[in-house]
Design a protein around this nucleic acid. Structure first.
Length: 875
RNA sequence: GCCCCUGUGGCGGAAUUGGUAGACGCGCCUGACUCAAAAUCAGGUGGUGGUAACAUCGUGCUGGUUCGAGUCCGGCCAGGGGCACCA
């Protein structure tokens, strides 16, 4: 038979138009069916989509189409994370306005996404740079201020010298800015903070209930929040050695058990006591200044040598009024963790040991490892941080560490100094408040006015949104808003006198912390959300995106739903009930002789035996095939999705993205793999047409009896249906692909073997199998599926057809084949009735020639029959 | 330094969660069709021995539990990721 090739270039736009005209992917807020919200992390409009987007959105689309066919009211929206530095960089480089640049990119990328055939509800499209979006964000900022979730404070912050802006802790990776890669410096600035630490406890505890999140992400968030239980302890200060008005020093420790091993106290250079001591001591003041001068780059600070300076102050040991400890100022003590002061126990903390060795303060071991002889136990250069029993610790001697911690805490809680308890149990978190001020133009303005008379005044709600000015200069580094001639000059809303607008804008991660809620009703003008609508759609049932947001975006969004609940915008525990983090798209790299990289499109590869050799298309020069790396512009190993779609069609790209690699792992993009996917598209097209031709002769009623070949086809179809359904639900797309291949192979085999003059029952079975086959690959390759569905004579779109039901009876075989082992080695198969008893199976197995040969005349000791699984004969 | 994950053919990876290791795809080899190529179709493809039936070894290394281990436990090795002066 002659079937023309499937022409993706013609078919794909045709079906995209059909879906759009019938608006079948539009979700209604008043639909009574059960809801399902599937969302992929929305893109930054950088210019063009890349293969990472293709992979991400294909996965989401498979889930969306499958759930829609399964009877759910599916919400599958798309938008743009549209504020950010690259737009300003483009403005500086090309003299184009950030808005113009951003919207042009959105237009390009939207057209690209449409060519992928995604089942998106474009009516809900949002862009975070649109005032109709950010005005609600400004409203929420004010709501958060009212709910005491915002704070303006001076603090040490991370300063990115290249992007000329502050960064949050989460945005500093290995001491460098997450975007610019520049070493981050420390600066003291007045900044706006969201009080995410108010929710430290809840953010941590709720992780255990996120059972559809990857374990890895949960663990990373737990570590990031970093809970530790310890004791706040107030040490009295020896008045003879201490500046006036200073009477005590409070420290935080997780090891109160080691208090009898204490040798010194240490203060952060920023500690108030250090500062007050420095007033009388120029040497100390110089030391503190030196600490700050060591460098402002975080990288330097972390590798700097540990230094201390003895203030002369003595602290009194809480368990012994006669025991005095020297108080140092030390460069390694952080002001913003605990109380900014510690006690040092050199025996059981490596850093403290290094410190005492430097200043000859001595060591007292207080924890003895189990089985160690106390006589010979000394600590010189390596601290013992393991388990053991207390020694040299008076009333704690002989206790385990846990017992000693408890006993020390109990005593200190009861003890008082200046009328208050000396010890207080305290949980400390590593998590810091989220600094959201950015000294940039292309972001959401912070709706605040600074008045000399009234102080910090919120912009009245009626004046929202505070819009960005259009006439803006990018000729110099720094914040363009701050040097705008007029924008910041405004009357104080309270007193009417001249005042200044806040010129910092919000971190763009604020924009992305609530967009999933806005999608539930993006048309609403009066509020960020319609609470009833938001509560119905949320949480997102399946969220899909990159692992790089394991902390950043995913933690901020979790904070935001809590803050939005406090402000009354929704009532939700968690934003994302199910999370899936997909792997990257990676590709071989190619290097010319001069060491520069070339793009995959510029070379050809030939296979000579086992060797693959690459050469330049232009002049045939040899090219070295390098390592496999994440697709990136710098390595020039990118493949443009548009080129692939133009050559092979979107379905081929989608199918390849889902094939082979498990979705959470990296996928290697290869030309051969794409060719393979494209071949399968053509093969399916031929197969469906061939089936269709045979099925055309079929009568309508389902036959009562099926012959062996027809039954085999039906079993293959329903077996594939059961497996693919299960695997899509579990996001195991690579297994879905394999099952569809198996099913197609089974049909091809039965077509090849079929008797001449096909019978009615086989024709009916093939017609059923063809329908199921097309429906099975529809979520992955929707255009080809529509084309095939039409070829099979259906009127409706396959995108609208309910998912087929499995006939479970077909999955149960009457006879089963059990593998037979002798002493754990497979020797034969045995075919038995499905419900055969163990005795019957045992008898049949022992008759087998291969078993008797393997037994070699020996009598079997026992025969283990695992029903429906395996038989093992033990000789 | 601490925490976590991964290790299976030439390659990507399957393996019903303790039950036939290598499904499916890529690549490669052989054949059919063709003047030829492409495309398509058929067959083969973990190593070793054998024409074959078959035997034997084989899931990073090593020891253990079990009738049976890629899967569980102990100890190593390698690769990747996260955190890192956190008191």
């Amino acid at each position: 038979m002659t079937t023309e090739r499937y022409n993706a270039r013609e078919a794909e736009p045709k079906w995209q138009k059909a879906w759009e005209e019938q608006a079948i992917f539009a979700a209604r807020n008043d639909d009574s069916r059960p809801k399902y919200y599937v969302l992929e992390m929305f893109p930054y409009p950088s210019g063009r989509i890349h293969m990472g987007h293709v992979r991400n959105y294909t996965m989401g689309d498979v889930v969306a189409r499958f759930m829609r066919a399964s009877g759910y009211n599916v919400l599958h929206p798309m938008g743009w994370d549209a504020f950010g530095m690259p737009a300003e960089n483009a403005a500086m480089a090309n003299k184009i306005h950030p808005r113009t640049w951003t919207y042009a990119n959105i237009e390009t990328m939207k057209a690209q996404l449409k060519r992928m055939g995604l089942s998106l509800d474009w009516a809900r499209e949002i862009a975070t740079c649109d005032p109709s979006y950010y005005k609600h964000q400004q409203k929420m900022f004010l709501d958060f201020v009212a709910a005491d979730l915002v704070e303006r404070k001076k603090s040490k912050v991370n300063w990115d010298p290249v992007d000329q802006t502050v960064l949050s802790n989460e945005q500093v990776i290995d001491g460098r800015g997450w975007r610019s890669g520049a070493p981050v410096e420390q600066r003291e600035l007045v900044q706006w903070f969201f009080k995410i630490t108010k929710y430290s406890d809840d953010l941590l505890a709720a992780i255990d209930r996120l059972d559809r999140w990857p374990e890895k992400v949960r663990l990373m968030q737990k570590n990031w929040i970093g809970r530790s239980e310890g004791l706040l302890t107030r040490f009295a200060l020896d008045p003879a050695t201490t500046p006036a008005h200073e009477t005590e020093l409070e420290i935080f420790t997780t090891r109160p058990d080691t208090l009898f091993g204490a040798r010194f106290m240490a203060l952060s250079p920023d500690h108030p006591l250090a500062k007050s001591a420095a007033e009388k001591s120029p040497e100390l003041a110089a030391f503190i200044a030196e600490c700050k001068r060591t460098g402002t780059a975080t990288e330097l600070i972390e590798t700097a040598e540990k230094f201390g300076f003895d203030t002369g102050i003595k602290a009194i040991h809480p368990f012994d009024p006669n025991w005095k400890l020297p108080v140092y100022v030390a460069n390694f003590v952080l002001m913003d963790y605990g109380t900014g002061a510690i006690f040092g126990c050199p025996g059981h903390d490596q850093r403290d040991l290094d410190f005492v060795n430097k200043y000859q303060l001595g060591v007292t071991p207080v924890v003895l490892p189990e089985g160690q002889d106390p006589a010979g136990f000394t600590i010189t250069t390596i601290a013992y941080e393991g388990e053991g029993r207390m020694i040299n610790s008076r009333f704690l001697d002989g206790m385990t560490i846990a017992e000693a911690k408890e006993e020390a805490a109990r005593r200190l809680e009861r003890q008082t100094y200046n009328g208050r308890p000396v010890g207080e149990r305290k949980v400390n978190y590593r998590l810091r408040d989220w600094g959201i001020s950015r000294q940039r133009y292309w972001g959401c303005p912070i709706p605040i006015i600074h008045c000399d008379a009234c102080g910090v005044v919120p912009v009245p709600e009626k004046d929202l949104p505070v819009e960005l000015p259009d006439d803006i200069e990018f000729d110099r580094p720094g914040n363009p808003l701050d040097r705008h001639p007029t924008w910041k000059n405004v009357a104080c809303p309270q007193c009417g006198k001249p005042a200044r607008r806040e010129t910092d804008t919000m971190d763009t991660f604020v924009d992305s912390s609530w967009y999933f809620a806005r999608f539930t009703d993006p048309w609403l003008e009066t509020a960020p959300t319609d609470r009833r609508v938001a509560d119905r759609w949320l949480p997102v049932d399946q969220y899909i995106g990159g692992i790089e947001h394991a902390i950043l975006h995913l933690l901020y969004s979790r904070f935001f739903v809590r803050a939005m609940r406090a402000a009354g915008h929704l009532d939700l525990d968690e934003p994302f009930a199910g999370l899936f983090t997909q792997g990257m798209v990676v590709h071989e790299t190619y290097k010319k002789a001069d060491g520069t990289y070339v793009m995959p499109a510029e070379i050809k590869i030939e296979v000579k035996g086992e060797q693959r050799q690459a050469s330049l298309l232009s002049n045939g020069d040899p090219v070295e095939i390098g390592s496999i790396e994440k697709m990136s512009k710098s390595k020039r190993n990118t493949v443009d999705p548009d080129d692939i779609i133009a050559t092979f069609g979107a379905d081929t790209a989608r199918w390849f993205m889902l094939s082979d690699s498990p979705p959470e792992r990296d996928v290697i993009w290869t030309e051969d793999g794409v060719q393979g996917a494209w071949r399968f598209v053509q093969r399916l097209w031929r197969l469906v047409n061939e089936m269709s031709a045979i099925a055309a002769a079929v009568g309508a009623p389902k036959p009562n009896e099926f012959s062996e070949p027809a039954l085999a086809v039906r079993k293959a179809a329903h077996g594939a249906l059961a497996k693919v359904s299960d695997d899509i639900a579990k996001l195991r797309f690579n297994r879905c692909v394999a099952h569809i291949y198996e099913f197609a192979n089974a049909i091809a085999a039965s077509l090849a073997d079929r008797p001449a003059g096909a019978s009615q029952d086989l024709a009916w079975a093939l017609r059923e199998a063809a329908d199921i086959l097309v429906q099975l690959f529809h979520p992955m390759m929707p255009h080809l599926a529509e084309e095939c569905w039409a070829a099979l004579g259906h009127d409706k779109l396959v995108a609208e057809v309910p998912w087929p039901a499995v006939e479970k009876a077909l999955l149960i075989e009457e006879t089963i084949t059990l593998p037979v082992q002798v002493n754990g080695k497979k020797r034969a198969d045995v075919v038995v009735p499905r419900d055969a008893g163990n005795a019957a199976i045992e008898a049949a197995v022992l008759q087998l020639e291969a078993v008797q040969r393997a037994l070699d005349g020996k009598a079997p000791k026992k025969v283990i029959v695992v029903p429906q699984r395996i038989v093992n004969v033990v000789a």
